[in-house]
């Protein structure tokens, strides 16, 4: 058994990406990984907070890190935004002693202190590297042979470096998809931005970026897209009909969390994987792989 402290983030725990949390938990169990949720964690603050009030944004994420530090385990999150923000606080703690002192002064008001020792990991990193693709392949019960999957990393799981994979041409998700028996299609835009939270404030800007991704995935023969981030999933799935309307296209590409694909391959009951939450239905594409 491997143990990690788990930071689901707002979207996966109570928001639109519950299917990610469910499938992550189910797959982790199958891989003998225990994800122990951090008690009373708060929102990481995400990009918006870092753009409004720098000091407060560091304090918001440092509270989580200070709580996790007491546990002494790696802190793993399935959300790329949480991953980037928690790591940002870690590197600021290493590089800026004055900031570190100030954040700790604020944390002291809540009887906390952070020493900067928590190792923040993304769930993809844990599965692809701690568990490894060989181990994953050995757990596959019904392989996904023939399913063409576009491996979409998005930005924040691989940048800023140094991370666990190449910042512009990563391979870990490609390898993981192949270990499930599926085909990872070429995807030149695999680390390009989905539009992020600008889909709310500047929808046209974000839809243009998301459109390019759907276009690239589709023209390279993908039948579905695998994502590692709640926001990427939302922009590509929930907004797909608006993209079709705006660009007069007819994309019908299911956008799945990589853990959902792992779940099918592992033969996990599909009801615990949350497929009904996909707006673009994956029913047809997955028909041959899901036991009925």
């Amino acid at each position: 058994m491997r143990y990690y402290t788990y930071f689901p983030g707002c979207s996966a725990s109570h928001g639109g990406a519950k299917a990610y949390d469910w499938s992550a938990q189910a797959v982790a169990k199958a891989l003998e990984v225990e994800l122990i949720e951090l008690d009373d964690w708060n929102c990481c603050g995400s990009t918006p907070y870092t753009s409004v009030d720098e000091l407060a944004s560091y304090c918001v994420s440092a509270r989580n890190l200070a709580l996790a530090e007491k546990r002494g385990l790696d802190l793993v999150t399935p959300c790329s935004a949480c991953y980037v923000i928690l790591n940002r606080t870690n590197s600021a703690f290493r590089e800026y002693p004055a900031l570190r002192a100030k954040v700790n002064e604020a944390l002291a008001a809540g009887d906390l202190e952070y020493h900067g020792t928590v190792n923040v990991r993304h769930l993809l990193d844990v599965f692809a590297n701690d568990i490894g693709c060989e181990e994953i392949a050995s757990r596959v019960k019904g392989d996904l042979g023939g399913l063409k999957v576009a491996p979409y990393y998005g930005c924040q799981v691989v940048r800023p470096s140094p991370g666990f994979d190449h910042p512009e041409s990563p391979e870990s998700l490609d390898r993981l998809i192949k270990s499930l028996g599926a085909e990872a299609t070429p995807f030149p835009l695999k680390t390009r931005c989905c539009g992020g939270s600008l889909v709310i404030s500047e929808e046209n800007v974000a839809l243009e970026l998301a459109h390019k991704l759907l276009d690239s995935a589709s023209s390279n023969g993908a039948e579905c897209i695998a994502t590692v981030c709640p926001l990427c999933q939302t922009n590509l799935d929930v907004y797909q009909s608006r993209i079709n309307k705006k660009f007069k296209t007819s994309f019908n590409l299911p956008v799945l969390f990589f853990t959902q694909l792992m779940g099918i391959a592992f033969g996990i009951d599909r009801r615990s994987l949350g497929f009904e939450k996909c707006i673009v239905s994956p029913k047809e594409v997955l028909a041959g792989y899901i036991e009925r």
């Binding site: 979207s11 109570h14 639109g16 918006p48 409004v52 939270s197 404030s201």
Partner: peptide, 21 residues
């Protein structure tokens, strides 16, 4: 609208520690 969007987001974080979408 991005500054207002960011502000709305951080206001929720500040008041309840999470963001109900």
């Amino acid at each position: 609208y991005t500054p207002t969007m960011y502000r709305s987001f951080s206001d929720f974080v500040y008041s309840i520690g999470s963001v109900p979408e």
